[in-house]
Design a protein around this nucleic acid. Structure first.
Lengths: 162, 162
DNA sequence: TGACTAACGTTAGTGCCACAAACGAAACTA
DNA sequence: TAGTTTCGTTTGTGGCACTAACGTTAGTCA
């Protein structure tokens, strides 16, 4: 074997069953899977979030996009830069409020979004392989309740990945 | 309100229900809670993992500890340093194999572990507040299956937190 | 016995991510 | 008009998972 002196891993049950630890490990695997999947298409998790928000709610300022995606203002700048460089999005000054930029989804961006959705769905499938459809939905609901509960107030609405 | 121009957050459902994203956000909250809780006692998530492994399986080499805790070899060095500085653990060369160090839990370390367990339990409780006992157990089982499934083979066994 | 291979602990460094701080410009507000 | 707030932006920080490399020590086996 590669490491220790005994047989299997022998991770203590107190560690194995610790919810926060399980969340961390599952999240690590999840982020790796989606990063790899989207990376093959030269995309990033945040790209998908921004494109989805734009398709869902139409053109928006960067501040509004930050709200809808959870991407931090200071990180969103680079994301829009990259999307604009790929012509998936257009950044134009807002004539009605010259502090703002209006970000608009291009037709190319919409087609791109379709592709990213496929890649992302595949990654979710791979992530949730060991779970049945009912279990997947249950997991999603349980996680959703936790996230929603802690989202109110805390400094973190997290620009977490996909 | 603090940001955008419309009412609530209005996060698209496609983002809100994405399992990998939910995992990431839940994990972020979880890590923050346990880091804060343990931080109040001048401790770190990894400290707990190492102490638990030592109590569970007795004295061990750093390599064995790395296996049992999931903490990377290169990070474990600093963890043992800190635990040894607090006299919660003793690091001694292994007479039978001079490449190895034998890490031993001290009585003080064992008492410390009791305290950290309390803090950690409280943090888990806070994290899982919106869930019933049955739901907590279900979440743990579902996450455990995912983690176990992806743990076999991948480069990541993750030195994830608690 | 000696050469090779592998495991050990350790150091240093990488890339990603969530986030804070501060700034000029523009817009509201009193 | 003065003061405050929002906007986009730049810069920096701390934590985490992980890789690479190195000297030391142990096994392997020609």
């Amino acid at each position: 074997m590669t490491t220790g002196e005994n047989g299997g891993a022998a991770v203590p049950a107190r560690l194995r069953e610790l919810p926060s630890r399980l969340l961390g490990q599952a999240s690590t695997h999840a982020q790796r899977l989606v990063t790899e999947a989207l990376g093959r298409a030269d995309a990033h998790k945040w790209h998908y979030a921004a494109l989805v928000a734009l398709e869902e709610s139409g053109p928006a300022s960067q501040a509004a996009l930050s709200d809808r995606t959870g991407i931090h203002r200071s990180d969103l700048v680079a994301v829009i830069n990259e999307l604009a460089a790929r012509e998936l999005v257009e950044r134009a000054p807002d004539p009605g409020d010259r502090r703002r930029n209006v970000i608009t989804l291009t037709p190319l961006g919409r087609r791109r979004l379709r592709r990213l959705e496929q890649l992302l769905d595949a990654a979710q499938g791979e992530l949730l392989t060991p779970l049945s459809a009912a279990e997947r939905e249950q997991l999603t609901r349980l996680l959703g309740r936790i996230v929603e509960h802690h989202a109110h107030g805390g400094p973190a609405m997290g620009s977490d990945g996909q």
